[in-house]
């Protein structure tokens, strides 16, 4: 709570800056529209205006600046416009009982969330299994670890269209699977690294103690290594779920998907409706925030239950 005031101040500053930026960003569009509507604009004609900077245009037409805040298709919408569009496509539709309509961002968010969770599940399982293999086998450690690092330096977006084409050719229906694969690819790595660190966290003396108890390898794993890796696991899960969401949206962006938040961004771009893009972007941000917060709460509860709360 100590951080609340500074965070709110910075947020307010960002929003204020955003409002200020709307005027120069939108002045050209506003002037074009005003001229078409028959208002007097200096200088006349779109071509001579292009030669002038936005600041000169704003000075020459001070009474048209306000119009830039009310455009239907602005280059930069105001925060208020974005908020209203977001409400129109989520809360308002839900109130009218059409939350799952194709025009509702709740529906598209749900599609994105599904792929994200599948990818998260897949990536997390792969990461944990890989980490166990790496910790227990020297060969796997030596041959897999460098490739795990290299795999993350490869821009996945280059592979994304390929994965979608491949799974379509292999007869996999729908888009959930390829999107989940892409998000698993982005999300397994933080989990792998975190779990390797966590499983190796117990000190030698603790492992020795279990040996004196005549504990088997499995017992040592279940009673010592696994519990001590939990804090590491949760930290990497939070990174992983954010990465999984990025993966899903990347999987929806370049490939002509029709549902999902990424597809809303794509469609908004093709149809020239910037408000739809911004609303989908903010919906994605809210989704990311909600998922990370959820995991954070889960982490607190679990660690407190295990007696490891910091």
């Amino acid at each position: 709570m100590r951080n609340l005031l500074p965070v709110l101040t910075v947020l307010a500053a960002i929003i204020a800056l955003w409002y200020v930026a709307v005027a120069p960003m939108n002045i050209r569009v506003a002037l074009d529209q005003a001229e078409r509507a028959g208002a007097a604009v200096t200088p006349e004609g779109a071509l001579p205006r292009r030669a002038l900077s936005v600041w000169r245009l704003m000075l020459a037409n001070p009474d048209q600046i306000g119009a830039g805040y009310r455009l239907e298709r602005p280059r930069l919408p105001t925060p208020e416009q974005v908020g209203r569009e977001l409400w129109k496509t989520t809360g308002e539709m839900a109130l009218r009982g059409r939350a799952m309509s194709k025009r509702s961002l709740i529906y598209h968010g749900w599609i994105t969330l599904q792929s994200t969770l599948w990818g998260f599940l897949l990536g997390t399982s792969l990461g944990i299994l890989g980490a166990v293999a790496i910790v227990y086998s020297r060969v796997v450690d030596m041959s897999l670890m460098p490739w795990a690092i290299i795999s993350q330096t490869i821009p996945i977006v280059a592979l994304a269209p390929m994965i979608i084409v491949l799974s379509a050719q292999l007869g996999i229906e729908g888009r959930v699977v390829p999107k989940a694969i892409i998000s698993a690819y982005l999300c397994y790595f933080p989990v792998l690294v975190g779990m390797v660190k966590g499983l190796r966290a117990p000190a030698m003396s603790q492992l020795d103690l279990l040996q004196t108890y005549n504990a088997s390898g499995l017992q040592a794993f279940v009673k010592l290594r696994l519990p001590s890796s939990v804090p590491y696991l949760f930290t990497s899960l939070k990174v992983g779920i954010a990465a999984a969401l990025v993966g899903t949206i990347v999987g929806e962006l370049p490939t002509g998907a029709i549902s999902g938040l990424g597809a809303r961004i794509l469609i908004g771009d093709q149809f020239g409706t910037p408000l739809a893009i911004w609303a989908a972007l903010f919906a994605a941000a809210i989704l990311a925030g909600a998922l990370v917060t959820l995991l954070d709460m889960l982490q607190r509860v679990t660690l407190r239950r295990m007696g490891m709360a910091a």
Partner: peptide, 28 residues
Amino acid sequence: FLTRGLLPIGNFVAALPIVGIAPILVSW
């Protein structure tokens, strides 16, 4: 003061799917 305000926001934004702004910036 600024550090305390910006760090949580920066951490949050760093976790967002920022790639989505690509179409907006391409049109700008």
